[in-house]
Structure formats: structure tokens, C-alpha cells
Computed example of a mutant assay.
Amino acid sequence: MFQIPEFRVWDDRYDKMFYVNKRNPNISLEFSSNGWSLEDAKTACLITTSHRKERSALMRATDQVYTAEDGYMGDTIFEGDVVKQRTEIIAGDPFLTTDITGVVVMLEGEWVIDTGMTARPLFSEVATNEKCGNVFEHRDIWEELYDRYVQLNKESD
């Protein structure tokens, strides 16, 4: 079965994240040869476009969800999310773990958690991922990761 990909768009003008998915039918994302545009389908008003690159960002959903400490499978992890990944070196021993916190980006065809110093695959059979926020809505907290996210996206253009 074909699954419609999920996207979200950050717009500085509204200081808001817009989610584009089946649960939000009033938001419409259109792609063309000139880029993309986000519209409110209910009012037919343009919200933002890819031409406002410095003020807005389009982010794809990954195929991963975060896992809470109680085992609860949480929301989808998106590009631009800040994720803390905990890996147990010896299964069942909470004292022998390694943690990494970074921003989720697509790097060489793979979703990774990028710290600016290292990048680790987002998917792991032996690690749990905790979503800590995202670089847009929490820019004051994650300033260095925001800068890294912007740098990586400029390199991919």
C-alpha cells in the first residue's frame, strides 16, 4: 500500500510549524517546477513558499518514531528535530550507555543524528530515540544545532 509522505513547514512570519498530513486536511502543500507553496485550503490563502527560503523551511518525515522511557512509541521524527539517542553497550545495563544529541538530517541518503562533530544513523536496533524538540521552535535552546542544520541544507542545494 502506498503511504502519503508527511511534511511540515516552519514559517518565521507566523512563528509556527505547519503539519501537512492526512490529519490536517486544511493545509495543502503544492509542488511545481519553481518550488513549493503552502496554502490554507479552507481559505485558499497562501501561507508561504520556497521563495522565502531564509524565512521558511520544508521538512520531510523520517520513517522513525521516538521511543519514550516507558516504551511508548511516540510521534514521527522529522528532519530538523533534535533527538537524543541512547545506546546500551551491554543490553540491560543502564550504566554502560552512550548518548548522542543532535539534529536529524538526510546525509548521503540516510537519516542521521548530526552533532556537528559526528553523525550516527537514526535507525538502530539497539538504541532508543527521544525527541527533545526541533531547531526552529526552540532556536534559543538549540542555537548551535540550528546553525548546523542551516549549513547542511545550504550544502545540499
Rank of each mutant, 00 (worst) to 15 (best):
E54V: 04
L38P: 09
W10G: 08
S32A: 07
G35L: 08
E30A: 09
L38E: 05
T49V: 06
R52A: 15
S50C: 08
T49D: 11
E30F: 06
G35Y: 03
P25G: 00
M17L: 15
K53A: 12
C45F: 08
G35W: 02
K53E: 09
A57N: 04
T43F: 01
E39P: 10
M59I: 00
E54R: 03
L46H: 04
D11P: 11
R23V: 02
K53S: 10
R8N: 07
Y14M: 13
E39H: 15
W10Y: 13
R52Y: 12
T48K: 07
S37M: 14
K53F: 09
E54L: 08
A44E: 04
T49L: 11
I27F: 02
R13Q: 15
N26E: 06
N34D: 15
M17F: 05
S37Q: 13
D40Y: 00
R23K: 11
C45I: 09
D11R: 11
A57E: 03
C45R: 06
A41F: 02
K16F: 07
A44F: 02
K22P: 00
V20G: 08
S56Y: 01
E30R: 14
D12W: 04
H51V: 10
L46Y: 01
N34A: 15
F18K: 05
V20F: 00
S37L: 12
F31R: 05
Y19R: 08
E30Q: 14
D15N: 11
M17R: 14
D15A: 10
E39K: 13
D11A: 12
K16L: 13
S33Q: 14
N34Q: 14
T49K: 13
C45D: 11
L46I: 03
L46W: 00
D40V: 00
K22F: 01
L58C: 04
R13D: 14
I47R: 02
D12K: 09
H51N: 14
W36P: 15
E54N: 05
A57H: 07
E30T: 10
D15V: 03
N21E: 08
V9D: 03
L46M: 07
K53C: 05
W36S: 13
S28W: 07
D15K: 11
L38F: 04
E30N: 12
P25R: 01
I27V: 12
N21M: 06
T49I: 04
A44K: 07
E30P: 07
F31A: 06
A57T: 03
C45W: 03
A44M: 04
S32F: 00
E39V: 08
M17C: 14
W10C: 10
K42A: 10
W36I: 05
K42F: 02
P25I: 00
H51S: 15
Y14Q: 15
E54F: 05
Y14A: 15
V9L: 03
Y14F: 14
D12R: 12
R52E: 15
W36A: 10
L58H: 00
G35S: 10
S28H: 09
R23H: 08
R13T: 15
I27G: 08
F18R: 07
K53D: 10
Y19V: 08
S33C: 08
V20I: 10
R13H: 15
L29V: 02
K22L: 09
K42N: 05
V20N: 08
F18G: 02
F18Q: 05
K16C: 13
S37K: 13
K22N: 03
P25T: 00
D11M: 09
